[in-house]
Simulated scan of single mutants.
Amino acid sequence: MTDDPLHIDPNWKSATVDLDGVKIRYLDNGGTGPVLICLHGTSMTAHAWGHLGSTLKDQFRVIAVDMRGHGASDRPNTTYTIAELAGDIARLAESLDLKGITLMGSSVGNQVAVSFAASNPDRVAGMILSDPSFFVSDAEIVKYLRSHHTRRRNYPTRAEAEAFARALPQRAGLSDQMHGLAMQGDFRQEDDGSWSWAYDLLAITKLFFNLSTDQSGDISAIHVPVLVLNADRSNVLSGNQAEELTRAFSNARLEVVSNSNHTIWGDQPVLLANTARAFLRDLHSA
């Protein structure tokens, strides 16, 4: 995989909004064009979108959200349903008065995006779904949960924490730069000076069990242009499933991303940024 160092800018503006008692942190690239809201996958954070936000800053405003239970956002003991997380995005969009939004997700972030779009059609202009998790198998869910529940949670130093994160098999396709961007949000420092994963284990456990939510009604309610991206080495979305999902939308097309695992944002960041730019340009020039 290749990456472009000229398009790596870690200087996001970080802000927090209080949404009915739940504080949600988001990163804003400071662009002034049409809005792209990015939603990360389970156990990830908004920092995964650093390359995308930097690359598109010249034409588009990119807002990347730490969904509840993740990153610097609150970790309330709630249900962590897809609809609940989508409700946070709806209140965030209302708080920031965002309209004409394009949504981009990774993994479960796509499911949250679809729930939001179905419930807020007046705010949504289009969607880019990056290797969606609608069809993730029970076996894969068990595999992921076992990985998280057996993973060491706390590390004496940040260097030890980052060494563990870098060695994760699902990040094998990331460049050094993309590892660095993701790890900006991976950990938080505890009062004793140690470092812990910046996601709540109970929260993501609930979220994994909610992946199998039937969203066929949401999908049928969405009529804006949709681009479905399917990683050719995905362990979550097969080619047949990607085609089935694309057909379920009224206005969607499918692109296969070569040389990529499920984490397209990290394995193919340059291609993803170029694809997003082309989609956004077409959407807003129509």
Rank of each mutant, 00 (worst) to 15 (best):
R253L: 03
R166G: 01
L6K: 12
V17F: 02
G30W: 02
W265I: 14
P76Y: 10
L174P: 00
D20R: 12
T213L: 12
P10R: 11
S216V: 05
R171S: 11
D186R: 08
Y199K: 00
W197I: 09
V114D: 07
D138H: 11
L227W: 01
V224M: 03
E140H: 02
R188V: 14
D192M: 12
R233A: 14
S260Y: 07
N230L: 09
A83V: 11
S260V: 06
T205W: 00
G239H: 12
S260H: 08
E160W: 03
N77V: 09
G266N: 04
A161P: 04
L36Q: 03
A231R: 06
G87A: 11
G41L: 12
D18E: 12
A252M: 05
G217N: 08
N261Y: 09
A83L: 04
G50T: 15
V17Y: 04
I63H: 01
E243Y: 04
Q184K: 11
I264T: 03
A159T: 15
L19W: 08
N77K: 13
D191F: 10
P121Q: 11
Y144P: 00
L6H: 13
M44L: 14
G100A: 05
N259H: 15
T246G: 07
I37R: 03
D9C: 11
N235W: 00
L168N: 07
L27Y: 09
S106Y: 10
R146K: 15
F135Q: 04
D138A: 15
A161L: 05
A46F: 07
T81M: 02
V62M: 05
R188W: 01
S216A: 10
K13F: 11
